[in-house]
């Protein structure tokens, strides 16, 4: 399982706007590069990222070859209730990775 770094505030007030930061370990090979021998290095990127907050999807992104290696994705949401954020990355060559983080809303 690839390493991921997730930053979700542990606590928030109800209705507060919170920032969620994710960093996923991935080479993001564009598919446009060649080896010294001239062979194409096959594309190997993350193609999709999504985040679910207590089961319902609140954020989704599609990724393309222009993204840097180890893509950093950050977004905002409103803290509505205590619970769990579930993150999923899907990519080429059958790549899948998941991570989760909890939040307490007061």
């Amino acid at each position: 399982m690839a390493s991921a770094l997730i930053n979700v505030p542990a606590k928030a007030k109800r209705g507060e706007i919170i920032e969620i930061k994710t960093l996923m370990s991935h080479i993001m090979e564009t598919g446009y590069r060649h080896t010294a021998e001239g062979a194409v290095v096959p594309r190997d990127i993350i193609t999709s990222f999504s985040c679910r907050y207590n089961g319902s999807e609140i954020f989704r992104a599609e990724l393309f070859p222009a993204s840097s290696a180890n893509p950093f994705i950050s977004f905002f949401t409103v803290a509505k209730e205590s619970g769990k954020f579930e993150f999923e990355w899907i990519g080429d060559k059958g790549f899948t990775a998941t991570a989760s983080a909890s939040i307490t809303v007061e």
């Binding site: 390493s3 370990s25 180890n70």
Partner: peptide
């Protein structure tokens, strides 16, 4: 920030 520093991966 250790959560934005890719070296931490």
């Amino acid at each position: 920030d250790d959560t934005t520093n890719p070296g931490m991966l």
